[in-house]
Amino acid sequence: MSLINTAIKPFKAQAYKQGKFVEVTDVDTKGKWAVFFFYPADFTFVCPTELGDVADHYAELQRLDVEVYSVSTDTHFTHKAWHDSSETIGKIQYTMIGDPTGTVTRNFNVMRESEGLADRGTFVVDPDGVIQAMEVTAEGVGRNAADLLRRIKAAQYVRAHPGEVCPAKWEEGEKTLAPSLHLVGKI
């Protein structure tokens, strides 16, 4: 079942952010764009490359008024230990949610129940708490933060410009489409 255009479910979780343990709830995500970036586990192989890629783009995400929440079923304590021991993870400034009960992971339908691990899932949530984009990949397939940025910019553009849509490969500043009867069969 698709979660597109559905509101995120309530949650409360412990997280690690910039040297501190913090509590995060669904209410904290309201009023700005959010990315929930699920991954299987700390101290693994593809995961640090993805989290590091998002960290490299975090300043631009912040300029777009987007907050990032990485989520795994590890604890917030494990996130701190990984942050302290890995150069790649050490550059992360965004919130790392610990979800050992799997509540947040199940809320987004990315729990591998037989393993207690999250799939690689990315969810773009608008300021109203509604999911506007999602991507789920197999464990061995890493994601690309540059494409995530492109999708966020497209979602933000569509929200700000009702009646317009962004075509394939749309980049900020490029032409959009205004769906209408006269476009049917002409693209």
Rank of each mutant, 00 (worst) to 15 (best):
P162I: 00
T95F: 03
I92S: 05
E67R: 13
R63M: 14
Q156T: 02
A133Y: 14
D126T: 02
V165K: 11
N107M: 00
L177S: 05
L61W: 05
Y69A: 01
G116C: 06
F123V: 07
G129C: 01
E67H: 15
A81S: 15
A59Q: 12
S180R: 13
L177V: 10
D147I: 03
F108E: 02
F123P: 11
Q93V: 00
V104F: 00
G185W: 05
Q156W: 01
R143S: 05
D65Y: 09
E87K: 14
H83S: 14
E87D: 14
G185T: 07
G163W: 00
P167C: 06
K169E: 11
S72T: 05
N109I: 01
P167K: 06
S72P: 10
L148P: 09
G163Q: 05
M111C: 06
W82R: 07
Y58S: 12
N144C: 06
N144I: 03
L117D: 08
T73G: 15
V165S: 08
I97H: 00
K175V: 09
D128K: 15
A155V: 08
R120P: 11
I92A: 06
N144R: 03
R106S: 04
T137M: 04
G185I: 04
I89K: 07
R143W: 01
R143E: 03
G129Q: 07
A81V: 10
L148F: 06
L117T: 08
G102P: 02
E67V: 13
T137I: 03
I89F: 07
D65P: 15
L64I: 08
T78H: 08
R150G: 02
G102H: 07
A133N: 12
E139R: 13
K80W: 05
T176F: 03
H83W: 12
K153D: 05
I97S: 00
S114A: 15
W170R: 07
G163E: 03
H161Q: 14
I152M: 02
Y69L: 05
Q156Y: 00
S85A: 15
A118C: 04
V124I: 15
V136H: 05
S70Q: 02
P162K: 00
A138N: 14
V66S: 14
Q93M: 03
W82P: 10
V125D: 04
K80A: 07
T95Q: 04
Q93S: 08
E87Y: 04
A178I: 09
K153I: 01
T75V: 04
R151V: 12
I92W: 03
D119E: 14
R143Y: 00
D74H: 04
V66Q: 14
R143D: 06
R159G: 06
G90A: 03
N109V: 02
E87M: 09
G185Y: 06
A59V: 11
P167S: 05
S85G: 13
F123S: 06
T176L: 09
T78V: 15
Y94A: 02
V124S: 05
P179Y: 00
